[in-house]
Every structure is written in structure tokens, then in C-alpha cells.
């Protein structure tokens, strides 16, 4: 119950720590996206081809993020940090903690914890200036810090690596003069519920290609509304796994800070049906 207070306190500390920094990079506002629950630049659920922060081709930049998603029977907390070098390479870390609010007593475990190291490289293009948009490839190395529950429900491995290719393109003045940002990602993965329930399972233990997409509209340069969709594998026999989607609004008052709120639909998660809820993410850049 103390988490929201901690969240707000840490958020304010982040803002104050970074507010003093003048040079946060030269890329235009919101072209670092926000930080996804896996730590890389993206929307909330899916990585985009954008690199986090605002480093342009002669600069460094970094981000720190706190996120929270609360559905009917679960709450996910994410702490993340990342650096980007010359708008070319992004290195990120995220720690996800999933509180098993409802299942906790039955499973004898209060939470699942996963660490994610992410590496993403911009291969080609620019989201704003290239007619073909911007293309990036990335990987996410994921490791369960608590594996008792995933193992018990049939997961094959406590570590896994997702590999993805993504494209992002901003269409200027696309709808009522507003800019439209489109992202598509293909991810090869064995992760169950993003990896929080381990990797591979009794039904499938092979890599599968999953499609992810988002569209978002800049109301102005500070406000962005959009939707995301993320296809998911279904490797575990004990419970069906659903695709994820969300509707989000992000506020990027300047380069140093962004706030993202979303309504997320995670579908059925580990036998508990229709997990929908609110998502809030705060990011600071330096």
C-alpha cells in the first residue's frame, strides 16, 4: 500500500535531479517515445524503433523510468534505466515485479521478479526525416529472479532472449493536420507473459514470431494519444495466454520528463480472466 507514495516521492526526486540538467539531447520532442515495461523505448507494451532519450548523432542521453500497472488481480511495478549513444545504440535495464495479489496465498509466493537487459541498434533511417522511416533491431535478455512458480506451472527455462525488428515512421500533418506515429515490430520469443512466467512450456518450447503494432497521434507536440497491440505466444498448458492491448495518452511537457497513462487489457493471465486496468509511467531524461 505504500507503493504509490514511494512512486510519487521517487518521481519527484527524478524530476528534480534531472531538471538541473540543461543538455538532454537535440532530437525533437517525444522522438524518444516513452519507456516500455521491458525498459526499451517504445509505447507501454511494445518496443518501437526509436531509441530512448534525445541523443542526436553527436550526443549521449539517458532515461530513468518508474511504471505501474494495476489490473483486477495483479500489479506490475517496473523500474528502468537506459542510455543512448549518438542515436545509434540503446542499452537498457528494467526490473519487473509482479505482485500476485489474488494468487499469492494459493501459490505460497507473493511476487514474481524478472530482470531485463536490452540492447537496440538503429539500423537505418530516421523517424521524422526519412521517407522510409526508422528501422531498428534489438534483443532483450530476461532472467527470472524467482523461478518456483514458473517452474511449477510448466515453464521450461528461467532465462530467455527475445529478438525483434521494428520500424517507426512519423507522418506529418496526417490527420486534421496532426502528426501520426506508426510503429510495427516483429518479435521472436519463447517468453510466457513477457517472461514473468518463464520461457517455453509443455505446449511449445520453440521460438515463435509475434507481431506488435501501435498508432499514435500527436494532438500537439506535448500530447500524444494512441493504441498498441502485442501478440503473445501460448506455451503453457495450465492456462491460456492472451494478446495484450492498450489505449494510452502521453504528456511530454519538454524533453526532461514524460507521463504516460493507459488503460491496458492483458486478457486472461494465469487462469484469472479479463485482466484490465490502469497503467501509469513516469520517465525522466538527462
Amino acid at each position: 500500500m505504500t507503493y504509490p507514495i514511494t512512486f510519487i516521492a521517487m518521481s519527484l526526486a527524478l524530476i528534480m535531479a534531472t531538471a538541473a540538467q540543461a543538455d538532454v539531447g537535440s532530437r525533437l520532442w517525444a522522438t524518444g517515445g516513452v519507456t516500455s515495461i521491458e525498459g526499451t523505448a517504445g509505447g507501454g507494451l511494445s518496443p518501437w524503433a526509436l531509441l530512448n532519450g534525445y541523443a542526436s548523432d553527436e550526443e549521449w542521453s539517458g532515461t530513468v523510468t518508474l511504471s505501474q500497472a494495476t489490473t483486477d488481480d495483479y500489479s506490475l511495478n517496473v523500474m528502468g534505466a537506459g542510455v543512448t549513444w549518438q542515436n545509434r545504440v540503446e542499452l537498457t535495464f528494467a526490473r519487473q515485479t509482479l505482485d500476485l495479489d489474488t494468487l499469492g496465498a494459493a501459490l505460497g509466493e507473493d511476487e514474481l521478479v524478472q530482470d531485463i537487459w536490452g540492447l537496440k541498434a538503429r539500423l537505418f533511417g530516421d523517424v521524422l526525416y526519412n521517407p522510409w522511416g526508422q528501422w531498428s533491431a534489438g534483443l532483450q535478455y530476461k532472467r527470472n529472479r524467482k523461478y518456483t512458480v514458473p517452474e511449477a506451472i510448466g515453464s521450461e527455462d528461467d532465462t530467455g532472449t527475445d529478438v525483434y525488428l521494428g520500424g517507426s515512421k512519423l507522418f506529418f500533418a496526417a490527420i486534421a493536420g496532426r502528426n501520426l506515429l506508426v510503429n510495427g515490430t516483429v518479435r521472436a520469443t519463447k517468453a510466457n507473459q513477457g517472461g514473468l512466467l518463464g520461457f517455453g512450456g509443455d505446449r511449445n518450447d520453440s521460438y515463435e514470431a509475434m507481431a506488435e503494432a501501435s498508432v499514435s497521434l500527436f494532438l500537439d507536440r506535448r500530447w500524444l494519444v494512441g493504441t498498441e497491440y502485442r501478440q503473445k505466444p501460448d506455451n503453457l498448458g495450465f492456462a491460456a495466454e492472451d494478446d495484450w492491448w492498450d489505449l494510452f495518452i502521453a504528456w511530454v511537457p519538454d524533453r526532461r520528463v514524460s507521463v504516460t497513462a493507459a488503460w491496458v487489457n492483458l486478457g486472461d493471465v494465469a487462469t484469472l480472466e479479463d485482466q484490465t486496468g490502469a497503467y501509469l509511467s513516469l520517465q525522466a531524461s538527462f
Binding site: 496526417a174 490527420i175 486534421a176 501520426l180 497491440y229
Partner: peptide, 23 residues
């Protein structure tokens, strides 16, 4: 729910393309 989302995405994307063409 998935078909609904695809419909939303398709509408937005097609709307975007039409507008892009217009401009």
C-alpha cells in the same frame, strides 16, 4: 476483443493514409 482492436487500428491507419494522400 482482438477483432475490435484490428478494426480500430485499420480505421486509424486507413484514415491516416487518406489524409496523407490528401496533403
Amino acid at each position: 476483443k482482438l477483432p475490435v482492436l484490428i478494426l480500430v487500428l485499420a480505421t486509424l491507419t486507413l484514415g491516416g493514409c487518406q489524409s496523407i494522400g490528401g496533403h
